[in-house]
Design a protein around this nucleic acid. Structure first.
Lengths: 329, 329
DNA sequence: TTGAAAGCGGTACCAC
DNA sequence: GTGGTACCGCTTTCAA
């Protein structure tokens, strides 16, 4: 260790300076600091991890990068982690890979990370089992298992679906349809439940409900099918913004105008929602807060807190230009 | 080390089994394997890294997650890395953070990763300097520095711009405009150069060229500005798909039909390009190959090869429904 | 084919 | 305040 000879103090004192231990004589601290600078010295992280038993690394697994909500959550997580002196390592495991077999991710090696944040997992039960078995502290954001026993951060999708639908009802619409996503997502089920409840409260029957995959194309197909079946809504609650965009495309292709003829509300407030025309009315998830809470809970877990405190956050209606008052024609 | 007593052989032999050394007696190997299984044993990676001097980790830095081209490249990188027994760790550093100060990323600690892939960096020169100083092997995908001395993987954006424009010309268009992105991207400059060359070869003058930010909104604004200035093209080459989408929105808002009145070609073949209506004609980057080549080059560098071999790949025209023959009106 | 022993580069406990 | 020393858990000589 060259830094020992360079600084003229012992290895131990160097270590103390590196770790901000206060019991180092100022003159010695300066010597070490000087040596560190001159040598461009950085402590070896493997050695550190080995000796300390922690890595200072937090893992975050997700299925896709291509989603501005995920993106914002990750940014928030990253920010808050840094604040606490942790680094973030990301791992993407595509759905197909996951189905294929077990977690190949390096994150899932107990000793690589101090904890893991799981973002909207597809195979939640399996992941929870694995993580518990390996005894890795973890928090799930947007979980899909109705009765998970993990620490979670969720947004109240029931409220989101309810508010979205209320918005349409308040605009005077009564012919209201819903394009939802795959039912194995808890969020999808909850949004739909909110939709149904809001209608029920107003004594309105759903005009149509389509269960599809997520994605622009699915929204297009669902709306096209409605039109061709002669069941044309005056308002649509789409389970996410991509579905909404697809539906908008479909209606426009058939000559309907948005929002003059048909109102559409999305969900998620994706980046493009405020950029397309007409700008999309949608439900925003509190992404910043989601990331922050996930970090807070995880660090608590790592600190040894019991795993009992989950968090439920509230979504927010964002009114833009894809919804308008119902007009008799 | 419990596994030693459990297996009944020495620590050394356990290590040999773990590392597939062939000089282990089969019966002993079985004993160890059995002990590993029963103990659910996994070697400590920090200890391994410390002893070996390598981590088996490759870092990948990028600016945003919200881009399906980046997404696909990352997937490809991940796949090929796994094939070679490496793990991938991702690090996002948003542009603003980067401007703020130096790389805070854990990846940039020499001993955390064996090498780094840099994806379309904003502050390329700085990163290159840093990485060279720290002596970390690295490869840049989509570099922006005209005369970098780093190993790079690029797609020929000149050819892409040229082919896109050729396509419009071959459809009979002569009033052709270009919305480009920020000029500090080499790719943007190259695409524009291809655009100009293709027109020049046909003796056509560009109708208009708009330099904007990337993004749907910028495309919308550029197209709107053209219309309001009375300079309406019959065909547009957009520097990326988001710009194309924005331009489509703008033209439609003013009553133009795509592609009947105006043809639009994008760039990148984002996920949404094939899902919106009309489906977007665009230029595809060979994402899978980009990831593969980056991995190949990086592993060569890590293996001690000289840093001299960069790679230039070819883009591909994908004709869909947003472009059509020019029709006199 | 196997194992003893010496690191890898730090941290933590101890006595001074 | 400081430094000696015993680890952290694995890989790598080197002899046997």
């Amino acid at each position: 260790m060259d830094i020992v000879t360079k600084s003229g103090v012992s290895l131990v004192t160097v270590s103390r300076v590196l770790n901000n231990v206060t019991t180092v004589r100022e003159s010695n601290r300066q010597k070490v600091l000087k040596a560190i600078k001159e040598l461009d010295y950085e402590p070896n992280s493997a050695a550190r991890s080995l000796a300390r038993g922690t890595t200072g690394l937090i893992g975050l697994t997700l299925v896709t990068l291509n989603d501005s909500v995920f993106h914002d959550i990750v940014q928030a997580v990253n920010e808050h982690l840094e604040e606490k002196g942790y680094f973030l390592a990301l791992s993407i495991s595509s759905p197909t890979q996951e189905e294929a077999e077990k977690q190949n991710s390096f994150l899932f090696q107990e000793d690589r990370v101090d904890g893991i944040i799981v973002l909207s997992p597809l195979n939640e039960k399996q992941i929870v089992m694995e993580l518990k078995r390996k005894n890795i502290p973890f928090v799930i954001i947007d979980n899909h298992d109705d009765n998970t026993r993990a620490v979670t951060v969720n947004v109240d999708n029931y409220v989101g679906g309810f508010e979205a639908t209320r918005h349409l009802i308040e605009l005077g619409h009564t012919r209201i349809a819903h394009v939802s996503g795959p039912e194995h997502f808890l969020s999808v089920r909850e949004r739909k439940r909110g939709f149904e409840k809001a209608l029920e409260q107003s004594g309105i029957a759903p005009l149509a409900v389509a269960h599809t995959e997520f994605g622009i194309r699915s929204g297009f197909q669902a709306a096209t099918a409605w039109i061709e079946a002669g069941v044309v809504p005056t308002a649509v609650f789409a389970g996410d913004d991509a579905l909404a965009l697809g539906a908008m495309d479909a209606f426009r292709a058939k000559g309907y105008r948005i929002p003059d003829d048909i109102s559409i509300i999305g969900y998620d407030n994706q980046l493009f929602a405020s950029e397309i025309h007409p700008q999309l009315t949608t439900i925003r998830q509190p992404v910043e807060q989601m990331g922050k809470e996930a970090v807070r809970l995880l660090l608590k877990l790592i600190g040894g807190a019991p795993r009992n405190s989950s968090v439920l956050l509230q979504p927010q209606l964002i009114i833009r230009h894809s919804t308008a008052n119902y007009k008799q024609r």
